[in-house]
Amino acid sequence: MPQSNGYHAAGGACHEEVIKLTGVSFSYENQPVITNLNFSVQERDFVGLIGSNGAGKTTLLRMIVGLLKPAEGSVSLFGKPVSQFDQWEKIGYVPQKNAFNPLFPATVREVVLSGLYSRGKLFKRISKVDQIKCDDALHAMRIEDLAGKRIGMLSGGQQQRVFLARALINNPALLILDEPTVGIDTETQEGFFHMIRHMHKHHNITFLMVSHDMDRFRSYLGDEPAREAGKLKFYVRHSHDLENCVENNLTHSLRGLRHSMEDQAALQH
């Protein structure tokens, strides 16, 4: 039984089904990419989705977030069919690093704040609370000094932190990372993965990470995929490996993130 710490009093369970795929199929111009896929992700799971180019990783990701409709089968998020799902602020999304034009005129702060813009915020102004959330996200990722810089001027590793901060600003329950380390040097990748693992261990976040290469994660996710479907492999670290239900409070969690990472770094040295 999951232990209750007050934050989960309403929902009760700590093992909510975050993503559920039932008999999902998809094809491009009669070429089947995904066939009859059943898979579910439980709260606080860490799922690594691996496959070569054309294996259907991005297709699957796009179906999960509702950008593509499966030809057959259904996708549910937090127990609701994607088409009826409306709590998008529960989902944080980190795109491929190369997905934007380096000349784009936008500061780090503008990008991180944009994580808050959702359907519910339409026509509303950016509030003081929003700015504080942004400060917290910048602080957690140690990029507060970069807030006023144009994002294209940052290094690849710094840009990653910006996109992570944008994804974290809503205190997401599910974090989706789409090949987050493409085009990033090995050393920076190591630091990034360290941060991700730390977040998974100590914070109440479910992870879905897509990559064509998960070598760096083998030690965390194990050598054997939990499931294979076509050319897709799912590596899973279940939440019952971890202490249950950490705090789920936004500012606390984001602020705590940096402190807990610093504590750990201090222990290691």
Binding site: L67, P95, E110, S114, Y117, S118, R119, F123
Partner: peptide
């Protein structure tokens, strides 16, 4: 003017905007 921040998001990262539920 009324949808400035949403237009920024759509322009900067259309996928992320869609994941945030922007139509």
């Amino acid at each position: 003017g009324l949808q400035f921040k949403e237009l920024f998001m759509m322009t900067f990262d259309e996928d992320a905007a869609a994941v945030n539920g922007l139509p």
